[in-house]
Design a protein around this nucleic acid. Structure first.
Lengths: 311, 311
DNA sequence: CCCGACCACAACGGCTGGTTGTATCCGTAG
DNA sequence: CTACGGATACAACCAGCCGTTGTGGTCGGG
């Protein structure tokens, strides 16, 4: 199936005859006839009943019609998603399973008319560069980095603290615990593959380690969360951190447990970053939505690195 | 933009390199390179950053990715809509603005996982033929016709009475009325273009005319409801009937009024028809939904032709 | 430092797809 | 009854696209 063919189908369905459709598409009637015939052969059904006075849709053609329109609509959206100019609001977040994802889902529910595109960049450095260049419009990140403040033209506001929870397999020593203190984590092996040196999230965990004397192993590449969960589930001595707001679709039969961490609860601080002079109209809408809808942050009994606290 | 190209884009994005994608698609690496280059030229942006170790998505590529997946999903659905075998439930109704449309929207809300296709056939004769042949699975119609009972293998159940309302322009004599009796309609010109002789809905209005001595003009072809509404709005002496359950999106500035009809209220009786041995699993779901959710019918003070009353 | 892995560019050839030309069908006017 | 107009389908031809083969360039690892 080819989009040009689908366009031809729609033109013929709207016109009620091939000849007029051909004129609309600036091709000959024979070309339209051939395209429709090819589409019918492709789909295995007859889409039009040909009469000497035109062509009208069969039942199959009627059934196909709305799908064809939808197809072109989606294609138009796809093209618009990368067109320079008034394109969908483009937002970066640290991971598709982070709390920022939930915020954006809520935003989409509240404003379904706003087209969104979500991307995931490496770290806040790349995000800031992309924001300044206008490639993306906003980013959910832990702001700044130790010793590297945000540039003047980038604004930020803290929107959400994501409490970390421990993720363990069924055979882990803490599998039955209702909660665990940070102090109790000392001595346990915590595995976080894919922790990239130089990123703000690596700095976050480095601070966490330094503050509470934990052991975090960042060895090995990240083969995706499925592989990580598999390993965690099967290895009694291994645990990992995960955002407590994550609505995880558990792979069946893993028997994974999540254990809240307390005294204090480490929270990953998500801020929204944007360029002060980004003219995208939906950006203001997003900021207003987050100001109204975002849960609190900086609650008592939580911990986050100094450098993430905004001025 | 071409669907094969989009497929190639997805394969390359998933594989992280052109060569492996080429192997998956059973073409050469050079073909993949060319397709991607063509897509990039088409969209006007770079989708991949090429490295000697593969190709990874740019920000634009990431933004395009979900749209590309959606595009193929929609294409797959479009093809499935006409595939013989386990295809979407195909339902016929008399008009997209009839009460049946509201019922189907409710069904879709209750069962969003069930794929639906709606078609609009000429009359119950064609609908019954289509149901018997398996081209469609169900039909919302006023059952039977005078002297032409349903065949044995077709089942039907009355699901909804749609009360008729009078639709008039702002200058019509009845524009200010809160309601009108059927007797009061005698002498008023009621215009219903496109009333096709031999159809069950033409028979319905013929009975209505005979029973209460109305004047219904069926002259002229139906140029669509927009043209009808335009004329009704502009012509003080003209009115038309419309289903009272219709949630019409009024063309702005028409000043159209709808006036309920009483003593008795003519109702258009929608029944669901289906073939007793249609094996489509969603058909049973639809019947159960309608049995539970459909409003009543046959209420006191309403009128419908004899021949629409089911045994 | 060379080799391996990967991508891009160039030249060639088959086949898809559009155009022109023609046959056929049907409703209508004369 | 016939001729005509308007519509679609089929056949032949031709161009341009797309995929293949062959080759060069670049980067990282052994």
């Amino acid at each position: 199936m080819d989009l040009d063919t689908v366009r031809t189908f729609l033109a013929a369905a709207d016109a009620g005859q091939f000849q007029e459709a051909a004129a609309d598409l600036a091709v000959t009637q024979q070309a339209v006839s051939k395209r429709i015939a090819a589409l019918e052969r492709d789909l295995g059904v007859r889409l039009f009943t040909r009469t000497p006075r035109g062509a009208e849709l069969t039942i199959d053609g009627q059934a196909f019609l709305p799908h064809a329109r939808e197809l072109l609509r989606v294609a138009e959206r796809a093209a618009a998603s990368v067109r320079a100019g008034r394109r969908p609001l483009r937002v970066d977040m640290i991971a598709s399973r982070s709390a920022a994802s939930g915020l954006m889902r809520g935003f989409h529910r509240a404003h379904p008319e706003i087209d969104l595109d979500v991307v995931m960049l490496i770290d806040i450095g790349e995000a800031v560069a992309a924001i300044r260049s206008g490639t993306i419009d906003a980013s959910f990140r832990a702001v700044a980095m130790p010793g590297r403040p945000l540039p003047e033209d980038i604004a930020s506001v803290r929107v959400l603290d994501e409490p970390l929870e421990l993720l363990v397999g069924p055979a882990h020593a803490l599998a039955g615990a209702r909660s665990v203190t940070v102090a109790q984590l000392a001595g346990h092996r915590i595995w976080m593959p894919g922790l990239l040196p130089g990123t703000e999230w690596a700095a976050y965990y480095a601070d966490l380690v330094a503050e509470f004397g934990l052991t975090i192993e960042a060895t090995g590449p990240n083969f995706g969360s499925d592989a990580l969960l598999d390993t965690i589930a099967d290895t009694p001595a291994l645990a990992t951190f995960m955002g407590g707001r994550t609505r995880l679709v558990w792979p069946a039969g893993h028997g994974l447990r999540r254990v809240p961490v307390t005294d204090p609860t480490p929270v990953y601080p998500h801020s929204l970053l944007w360029r002060r002079d980004d003219p995208h109209p939906a950006l203001a809408t997003l900021r207003a939505h987050l100001a109204a809808a975002a849960p609190g942050h900086g609650a008592a009994g939580t911990w986050a690195p100094d450098w993430t606290i905004e001025r």
